[in-house]
Amino acid sequence: MEPQTLKSNTPARAALNAGVIIGLLMLVFNFIVYFIDYSYLVAAWYGIVVLVLFFGLVIYFGIQYRKEIGGYMDFGAAFQFSFVTLIVSGLISTIGNMILYFVIDPGLPEMLVETQLENMVAMLDNFGAGDSISGDQIDEMRNEMANSFTVAGQLKAFGVSIIIYAILALILGAILKKKDKTKDF
């Protein structure tokens, strides 16, 4: 009698593997950008590039998984794959960011806050609203931004991300599902 083994093609197992790969790739990308110029980490274009790359990788690995299981995947399996992938990769990214902020470069959060604040003020100036913001409001924004770079802020952001991941997994699940039309009859 053969020992029972875990099915290697379950959505959760495939998502765990994909999530680790995506999380590590995103972490490497984040560190490369940090070493090039830390200010890019709070640039709007960087956020857009990361989002596109992130979605593209989840879709790529989802399609690979769908091919592995026969070319068809129902919405439930596609949602489960997407959600677990997003959570695992998000957790790896969060841990990597915490290592960057608290071990590798503890001064980085303060520099990112100042850069982010400068970007916001410049954007407000472009819209003609730069003069309407007071020094107290700037200090309040600085404190809120600084709080997001603490351990508690990082964990809170990951908690909020889980809710966002669920919504994104619904969208990705709809993209990745493929119905076997031969079973309709």
Rank of each mutant, 00 (worst) to 15 (best):
E2N: 13
Q4R: 11
T5Y: 04
L6N: 06
A12S: 12
L16S: 00
N17C: 10
G19A: 05
L24C: 05
L24N: 01
L27M: 03
F29H: 02
N30T: 09
I32A: 07
I32C: 09
V42S: 09
V42Q: 02
A43C: 11
A43M: 12
A44R: 10
W45S: 12
G47Q: 11
I48R: 02
I48P: 00
I48M: 10
V50C: 09
V52M: 13
L53I: 13
I63L: 10
Y65A: 06
I69W: 09
Y72A: 07
M73H: 05
L86I: 08
G90A: 05
L91Q: 04
S93T: 04
L100H: 07
Y101T: 03
V103A: 05
D105V: 07
D105R: 08
L108S: 01
L112P: 00
V113D: 00
Q116K: 13
L117P: 00
M120R: 10
V121T: 10
M123S: 06
D125L: 08
D125V: 13
G128K: 04
A129D: 06
G130K: 02
G130S: 03
S132W: 12
I133L: 08
I133R: 03
G135K: 10
I138N: 01
I138R: 04
I138T: 06
D139T: 12
M145V: 04
N147F: 11
F149A: 02
T150Q: 01
V151I: 14
G153T: 05
G153E: 01
G153C: 08
G159Y: 10
G159T: 01
V160Q: 10
I162M: 03
I163D: 00
I164C: 02
A166F: 13
L168A: 13
G173Q: 08
L176Q: 01
K179D: 01
K179R: 15
T182S: 14
